[in-house]
Design a protein around this nucleic acid. Sequence first.
DNA 1: GTATGCATGTAATACGTTACATGATTGT
DNA 2: ACAATCATGTAACGTATTACATGCATAC
Lengths: 196, 196
Amino acid sequence: MRFTRDSTWRTIVTMRRLTTLENVILGLLRGRAQCGYDLRLQFVATPLRHFSDSPGSIYPALARLRRAKLIAIVRSGHTSGRRTQILEPTSAGKDAFRKWLSRPVTRADVVWNLDEVLLRFAFSGGFVEKAVVLRILDELQLELEGYIAELRKYLATAKDELTLTGYLAVQQGVEKYEASLRWAQRVRKEIVRRAA
Amino acid sequence: MRFTRDSTWRTIVTMRRLTTLENVILGLLRGRAQCGYDLRLQFVATPLRHFSDSPGSIYPALARLRRAKLIAIVRSGHTSGRRTQILEPTSAGKDAFRKWLSRPVTRADVVWNLDEVLLRFAFSGGFVEKAVVLRILDELQLELEGYIAELRKYLATAKDELTLTGYLAVQQGVEKYEASLRWAQRVRKEIVRRAA
DNA sequence: GTATGCATGTAATACGTTACATGATTGT
DNA sequence: ACAATCATGTAACGTATTACATGCATAC
């Protein structure tokens, strides 16, 4: 029997990277054991909806997490209507979640997944030590500065070939990244201040 | 013969919404007729890489656009190595591209696809009338203001249930949206000023 | 007795990602 | 002789999206 990277492989070796949605679900369940429907409500009623909503993504994600034994049903009631399955992360699930929170912030994250970095920060309170939170903020600052410099350099060299609107759009990107950078600097100080 | 929504249907009725990538490709080809490889270079060497790179997404997108008759091969040379296929949007392709640029900016766009709105703005220079560009900026301002108000309201009501990091993360979202709003206001003035 | 909300799910589809394949030309 | 670059693609896989299905309870 050969182990190729198919669905069999996936259920046996659960080392694949979890998706953002799966990690957020783990985070919400760590905060409070609840059923899939309550999870959905939290997605639609909070800024989390920026990331996902719709049962068609959440329930399959729950099924995957359960197959991977990262969450488990702690009890199933019949509050009203159909049965409800109260879910909770297993200890493996908690480990995976912590691992997600502690991942280093790379340049790739800043270019393609800045929102996910912020999500990780949002969930880090209470689940990892303050030192990890500060490290994430430091790495974020560093990579933001680097990428902003990249973009500025591009603007300077490509100015003549760009249309006005093209130039202005990139400018907007720079300004948004600068807003993130200022936020990171301010928040870092704030967290250190609170610790004292 | 029934017309269900399968791949046959797709090639017959080409009214499906194009993906962001497909629209960007149309935009780049409108700017200059070129081959797929040159397109890729523009993706990796400019801030467009934020949206995509990798031949595995670009070539299939080109194939789809060709099947839909939105682009066509204008000539194929043998500059060096393998044949190169110089591509250009057809008149249907130009129409589809203009339609993308002129789409109204909705709340959903601001919540889930702000980057795409900026991309549309970036490409609008030269391809649609100034009035359309101003309208996009106005709609963008309106929806940004609305969504910022939503987020502020959420922050005010949910403050006690949120962790500190959760609160700060949403705060960061607000600040980024505010940066976009300030940009939109400034740019609108700038464009009006240039017209005079 | 009909609509709405709770609660869970499935099926079809399409796209992006990753990895791989191919083959000619240019530089060393 | 070998590597890198040009240039175009395919195959496998996984996930999100959309739409639909189900069935109980409550309110009108």
